[in-house]
Amino acid sequence: MILSVDGVEFSYSSRPVLKDIKFEVNRGEFFSILGNNGAGKSTLLKCLNRILKPQTGTILIEKEDLFALSSREVARRLGYVAQRYESTRFTVFDAVLLGRKPHIKWGATARDLEIVRKVLAVLGLEEFSLRYLDELSGGELQKVVIARALAQEPRVLLLDEPTSNLDLKNQFEVLKTVKKAAREQNIAAVVVMHDLNLALRFADKFLLLKNRTVFACGGMEIMTPENIAGVYGVPVAVERLASIPVVVPL
């Protein structure tokens, strides 16, 4: 087990957003958080790397208390990819090098540059390395942001809707990369998703959020038509098409 969340509650001033959240994520797992708009998915993800501070509850990362770590130590363990990021006048290489920030004391070392080179190679971004971010397409930019999180060498990768602005090809490429990274580096990826079919295709485990709390959590077995209809409020059928599970609203 790499990440363990128990009894987490969070509210913005007096408006409760998350209640009694409890789940566990294992090494090598692609863990998908699903639910309606406003169910608290993004808030939960931000609590996991302390961008937001839950009022109660414990979060353990590799058995260490998240709230006892400094923000630099948190950033060394958890890589976060925000839903929104800005395309600025940075080269791809510099943008990915930024992921080394939690490890850098004063200047970037040869080891930092080497890690960036490897990550760029893994994501197939080598040819863009000296291009400016504001000259890239949406799919390329999304890969750069994921590359930055991988360069952090995190234990857990947190991704907030990484495919929301991508075309079909890029959706698949990005999620494949994430899944492969989680498997090969024996880390975990916690991914907030909207597209149920992509989740069914890539995720090993699912967390269904409804009314600010956990509706169901587990593997393929919880992705039943009843559970999905219960969370989204739409009757659905779960079928297999060429042995790939798909969800169809009825």
Binding site: I51, G79, Y85, F90, L98, K101
Partner: peptide, 15 residues
């Protein structure tokens, strides 16, 4: 540099 990528990205990098 981290802030240039947006506030949440910076926080994610420990700023």
């Amino acid at each position: 540099n981290a802030l240039d990528g947006g506030e949440e990205t910076a926080k994610g990098l420990g700023v």
